[in-house]
Amino acid sequence: MNKNRIGILFLVLAFLIITTSCNVVTDTIPSEDYENLLKIHFIDVGQGDSTLIQLPNGEVSLIDGGPGSAQDKVVKYIEVLGIEEIDHLIVTHPHEDHIGGLPQIVENFKIKKVYMPNKTANTVVFEELLLAIKKQNLNIDIVKAGDYLIDEEQLKFYFLAPNRDDYDATNDFSIVSKIDFFDNSLIVAGDAEKNSEMDMIDSGLDLKADLLRVGHHGGRTSTNDDFLEKVNPKYSIISVGRENAYGHPHRETLERLNKIGTKILRTDRLGDIVFISDGQRWVYETEIARKENAVAIMYIGNKNTKVLHSIECNSLPIEENRIFFTSIVEAENMGYRPHKNCIK
């Protein structure tokens, strides 16, 4: 990794550490095999789930799209990041709070591959998703535990569940994803409940992870003691709606999480939650932190030319080509170069 790249990495991490006062410190930088960072976006979709993953090899994954009520939010969130193509669209299971926003995603972005469990639903929203997939001439890959999307020495993306095709509960068919990036790892648990969690334990797959996107919005039938003991996460993220009718997250689940000393982060309290890893450490930022620590100067990038402008520039790009940054370092980290006239 060249000196400029290392400098940019440290600046990005320092910026996030300052704004969030949260970091896991290590002494080394990953090898030069991966110059980019792993970025995990737990999007606040209310009572539902949507996790956007920007992989260090340049690929993009979206796990679920939240309910239909959040479809515009998810589309806009992805557009603001300048993303036009999604390499892996993972549909954990066919419940509306996970797939309601996906037809819009399929219509608005170029999707390379779609992954689902071997479970269907006789619902209007599931039929709408299948129709949107068919209109784009996309095939659906049925996945199971042990399947890999990426299997490289320092970057692995694979599935821990489902392990069977005969569960009684739809939630237990949930695709559970794991990413290992150098020394860092995370699990996104869908709505997997106890039966699926026990099967994951029995499978012998490595369940240890720094980050756990808690199953089923913190419901009491998920995130059981035996599963938590295997995962032992430093951070537990709960995607949940404010004052939801289900009482999520349940008191019993919160007690189990608190018992292992994990840091609990909830979208109903913090909004969008973004984690960044260089392979050795995690730093995170929340929507609340961004609002409280918002900097005065904003920058606008041109998604076509990759040129960065100040907000006062007379040569700003048209609205649909704009992407917004809070710092020059953030923009340069995504490949943007300063405009020679407005940024000295």
Rank of each mutant, 00 (worst) to 15 (best):
M1V: 14
L11K: 12
L11R: 15
V12E: 08
A14Q: 09
I17C: 10
I18P: 05
I18F: 15
T19F: 05
T19Y: 06
V24K: 15
T26F: 09
D27G: 13
D33L: 09
E35A: 07
N36Y: 11
N36M: 13
K39E: 04
K39H: 13
H41E: 07
Q47H: 09
T51Y: 01
Q54T: 04
Q54A: 14
N57L: 07
V60W: 01
V60S: 01
I63T: 04
G66W: 02
P67Q: 09
A70T: 02
K73R: 13
I78N: 06
I83L: 01
E84P: 03
E85F: 02
D87V: 00
D87P: 08
L89G: 04
T92E: 05
E96W: 05
D97T: 15
H98M: 01
L102I: 01
I105C: 01
K110P: 00
K113L: 03
P117H: 05
K119A: 12
A121Y: 01
N122H: 05
N122F: 12
V125N: 00
E127Y: 02
E128R: 00
E128G: 01
L130F: 05
L131S: 07
A132Y: 00
I133S: 02
I133T: 03
N137Q: 03
D147H: 12
L149M: 01
D151V: 03
F157Q: 04
A161W: 08
R164C: 11
R164I: 14
D165Y: 08
Y167T: 10
Y167Q: 12
F173E: 12
V176I: 03
I179C: 09
I179F: 08
I179W: 07
F181I: 12
N184H: 12
N184S: 14
S185D: 04
D191W: 03
E197D: 04
G204K: 10
D206Q: 09
L212A: 05
R213T: 15
G219M: 07
D226N: 09
L228V: 04
E229D: 06
V231F: 10
I237E: 05
I237V: 12
I237C: 03
I238N: 07
S239D: 08
V240C: 06
G241Q: 00
N244L: 00
Y246T: 06
H248M: 05
H250K: 13
R251V: 14
T253W: 06
E255H: 02
R256C: 11
N258F: 10
I260P: 09
K263I: 07
I264N: 10
R266D: 00
F275K: 12
D278V: 11
R281K: 06
Y284Q: 06
E287I: 02
E287V: 07
I297C: 12
N314P: 15
N314D: 12
S315Q: 10
P317C: 03
P317L: 05
E320V: 03
N321A: 08
F325Y: 13
A331T: 09
Y336K: 00
N341R: 04
